[in-house]
Design a protein around this nucleic acid. Structure first.
Lengths: 130, 130
DNA sequence: TATCTGTTATATATTATATATAACAGATAT
DNA sequence: ATATCTGTTATATATAATATATAACAGATA
């Protein structure tokens, strides 16, 4: 698996896994419809309890990123189409308020900040026909 | 005070206060050297325990945003010059990885994302001589 | 002296995070 | 059918994070 967990991090393990799976989808490392490891298998690979993975999968299912079938296990939602909901936009704007404020105060120029955004977006675009 | 706390939020109260103070500095609503309410006063204003405010002030002091004098209380650091440290840049890039990934998957175009960044930066720039 | 600072100590309550064991129902392969 | 793999559920425990409650202290100030 492509997951890299930092056990010393202040970011909870389950959150790190969620983040990396969503980012994996965006990067194309995970394809739509691709099977994910079983809760017990992924837990064993990482070296954590399976309940932690189960929590991740259920949240990802709740948010529409994956689908779970009792027979085949967990897979990336083949019909993935997460929406740009007002709730999401509000939470994003709230996050960017504090993030840009600190960046600005630390002397990170707007150009530099935007360059970071563009660098990320390029890595997602590269897999499509533009 | 300009603080608006959402008690139902999943974001801890102390974190909301920290965020709004730092953003207040960036927006110019808080000036360098400006006095902040005492721990007991701010706690009373918000309606929370003074230990929560004390925790905020100590973290802000630890990170260089404010200075604390036993006599005069807490003020925005008059010599504020937060640095663009490698540690900060790494944490920012980590944050933008997951943030842009989800934004991209939700159909938020690069232009829209950048527009949000620019909107924020404008609100900071407006107080300076450009 | 009274009142305002921040600070410290102690204790409690709640929630979040993570683990540990066990068991169950459904599907699948041998 | 048996063994093995799914996700799911239940219960229990441990630790840390968050927040509150009371109390007291030292320094500055009016």
């Amino acid at each position: 698996m492509f997951l890299q967990i930092q056990f010393e991090s202040e970011i909870p393990i389950y959150q790190q896994i969620k983040n990396q799976i969503i980012r994996g989808i965006a990067l194309g490392e995970l394809e739509l419809g691709e099977d994910l490891p079983s809760v017990r298998q992924l837990a064993a690979d990482i070296g954590i309890n399976f309940h932690t993975v189960n929590k991740v999968y259920n949240q990802l299912k709740q948010e529409g990123w994956v689908v779970i079938h009792r027979k085949s296990g967990v897979m990336v939602n083949p019909d993935l189409k997460p929406e740009k909901t007002p709730e999401y936009m509000e939470s994003l704007e709230e996050l960017l308020k504090i993030t840009t404020a600190e960046a600005y105060l630390r002397g990170l120029e707007k150009k530099e900040f935007i360059a970071l955004i563009e660098k990320n977006y390029e890595s997602y675009k590269s897999q499509e026909g533009e």
